[in-house]
Design a protein around this nucleic acid. Structure first.
Length: 184
DNA sequence: TGAATGATCACG
DNA sequence: GTGATCATTCAT
């Protein structure tokens, strides 16, 4: 069942929490979201300034925002905030669901725990890159309903790799998951 | 702990 | 144009 577009119209922080448990599908490969981070127009966000790159975070919601970083990795986000303020949720880790053999080949590893446990890793595993930037989350790569986690099963923490705005607990992950990128 | 590796942005 | 930075990953 498709995740309703309505969900992404909300603020990035609310969306980040609600995305846990949903499933991202591309071709025969898929994974369940176990870790996310919210970005708005705070000082640590690409959307702190409105530029060609961050335009995707300003313009629409319910679309993929995929960017290339460190000269070798992609990171995938879903744009949020239907109120025309900027927002997106970074997908930081997935629990592999389907197409595991194909993903092992793409990632050059046999360790399932290491397949999708990081934003760059999961893009490599799903073969996600810039060609999806700006596309609908109901397109070739899409998101569907999966599990639901109670608040007691979810941990809130500072965003990883972010020095500014450390007081914002905008990282969400499934407490018991062994597939998250990093535990606190 | 540091190298890899190139797009993006600010500045002039 | 040039230089700094980077929502990372992997090997050392």
């Amino acid at each position: 069942m498709k995740t309703p577009l309505m969900l992404f119209e909300k603020d990035a922080v609310a969306v980040a929490r609600e995305l846990l448990g949903k499933i991202i599908v591309h071709g025969g490969c898929s994974g369940m979201i176990v870790e996310t981070e919210a970005y708005t127009d705070d000082s640590a966000s690409h959307a702190h300034k409105r530029t060609p790159r961050s335009e995707a975070m300003y313009s629409t919601y319910g679309r993929w925002y995929v960017y290339f970083t460190y000269g070798m990795h992609y990171c995938m986000n879903i744009t949020t905030n239907g109120d025309h303020s900027p927002g997106a949720v970074l997908i930081r880790a997935l629990e592999p669901v389907a197409g595991i053999e194909v993903m092992k080949e793409r990632r050059k590893t046999d360790n399932v725990l290491n397949l999708m446990s990081g934003p760059g890793k999961l893009c490599k595993a799903l073969d996600a890159d810039k060609r999806f930037n700006g596309e609908s989350v109901h397109g070739v790569m899409h998101i569907i309903e999966g599990k639901t986690f109670s608040d007691g099963e979810v941990v809130m923490a500072p965003r990883i790799g972010i020095l500014k705005a450390r007081e914002l607990l905008w990282r969400f992950y499934v407490k018991d998951s062994t597939f998250v990128s990093k535990r606190l």
